[in-house]
Nucleic acid binder design. Sequence first.
DNA 1: GCCAACGTTGGC
DNA 2: GCCAACGTTGGC
Length: 160
Amino acid sequence: MAKRYWLMKTEPTTFSFEDLMKAPKRTTSWEGVRNYQARNLMRDEIKKGDSVLFYHSNTEIPSIVGIAEIVREAYPDPFALDAKSPYYDETLNKGRENPWVMVDLKAIARFNTPISRDDLKAQKSLSEMMVLRKGSRLSVQPVLDSEFKIIHSMSDLTSL
DNA sequence: GCCAACGTTGGC
DNA sequence: GCCAACGTTGGC
């Protein structure tokens, strides 16, 4: 099965690439996705070994800041059942099966210079990227091989 | 802080 | 099933 590419968004005030690099084994679980389209991608499409562009959203300069890798495929997100978690899903309290899943992600490379949204927009060959579309809110997005390669070649990265 | 775009909810 | 109201996302 061919390796695939994804873009995952996070607000750096919630969980940043720095946080991922500092995590044990530079690995974290990607909990808290509460959108069915994104859930379906994680559950059905995202495979171990796939690469992830790590995107910082809702910040001063929205940017891709590094590359991560899927190290564990989808499994149930326990935070959905934890009343103390900000990701608690209170609609599950009647015994409805927990529909939410998460994957595990490992930091692979850090961009010494983040590639900003403006940088991406300046590339004609990236004009179809989902993340650049106005109103694009999906927090887990597919990325074409060609798009990943271009971004990789634009980057100045340090392997971790 | 503003607000457009989007997903979800719930009345009918 | 329709769709208005609402809450959230996220660029600007």
